[in-house]
């Protein structure tokens, strides 16, 4: 799915203070079909807001968001989101959590369970179909989260810091898994993270957002051949990219600190 965003701004009115909060300001970029794009930026820069706009959960205050040349109008079957918290229904088994999205989209339960089978294998969940979320580890829960999105065969996969609650080792494993799965599906993917090395490992392109209000700071292409192995994280090329992106992020981090000091001023 081709994404074209021009002049996108999102503003919230803070409920308590009534102040206006500008999450995104005049953001514009395009993503070609079948690309894996990571979005990084300091916390509070509107990364998640960007995903929500694309998912149709948040409407823009200004600007145009086109998916295959059609403007976004609410959520749709062609998109699926992987959430930061696993957001599993505790009363459903793994299998029925995976089929949840399909069921909401009107697929019968029998049909949904049949389709889900392949994706349960793909996400490494075989043998856990009848387990409940409480019975499986955090890593497994994220696999369910991922499988639930994949099973709807979206043209655009939106991933919102899906591994931020996992420990570093598990994170590496899941990055590898996502890369492997993406090799098979080749869905256009937008992956939000605040970890630079995660972004470099996964992405074809990295969009760096500025501190609030989020604007595009830079778009960095990543050209490691695929399939990628964790070994690339130790190569000099990887380190060069890491340094460059850290520097970009550091500039923005200083900006955040400055903003906060301004906010704190009496």
């Amino acid at each position: 799915m081709k994404i074209d965003i021009t002049g996108l701004s999102v503003e919230y009115i803070m409920r308590r203070s009534g102040d206006k909060l500008i999450a995104l300001k005049e953001v514009g970029f395009s993503i070609a079909t079948g690309k894996f794009v990571c979005v990084i930026g300091p916390s509070g820069c509107g990364k998640s807001t960007l995903l929500k706009v694309l998912a149709g959960l948040q409407s823009p205050s200004a600007g145009e968001v086109l998916l295959d040349a059609a403007p976004v109008q609410g959520p749709g079957k062609n998109r699926a989101m992987v959430f930061q918290s696993a957001a599993l229904l505790p009363w459903r088994t793994v299998l029925r959590n995976v089929t949840y999205g399909l069921e909401l989209q009107g697929v019968s339960i029998q049909e949904a369970e049949k389709i889900a089978g392949d994706f349960i294998d793909m996400a490494g969940l075989s043998g856990f179909e009848e387990s409940y979320p409480r019975e499986i580890s955090g890593g497994m829960q994220q696999r369910v989260n991922l499988a639930r999105a994949l099973v709807t065969r979206p043209d655009l996969l939106l991933m919102d810091e899906p591994f931020s609650n996992l420990d570093p080792q598990l994170r590496n494993v899941m990055q590898l898994e996502v890369e492997r799965i993406w090799e098979q599906t080749r869905q256009t993917t937008l992956f939000v993270t605040h970890l630079i090395n995660e972004a470099i490992f996964l992405a074809d392109e990295i969009i760096v957002l500025t501190a609030r209000p989020g604007r595009i700071k830079e778009i960095v292409p990543i050209n490691f051949p695929r399939p990628r192995k964790l070994g690339i994280k130790k190569t000099p090329e990887f380190h060069v990219l890491e340094d460059r992106l850290s520097e970009l992020m550091d500039q923005e981090f200083h900006e955040v600190v400055y903003q906060q000091s301004q906010d704190d001023r009496p």
Binding site: K52, G56, M81, A87, L89, T152
Partner: peptide, 22 residues
């Protein structure tokens, strides 16, 4: 749960579906 609500909405759930499944 707000997260579950967003989840259902992201799959295009209507009010009836949110009510019955959540």
């Amino acid at each position: 749960d707000k997260g579950l609500f967003d989840l259902a909405r992201s799959f295009g759930a209507n009010d009836v579906q949110v009510f019955t499944t959540l």
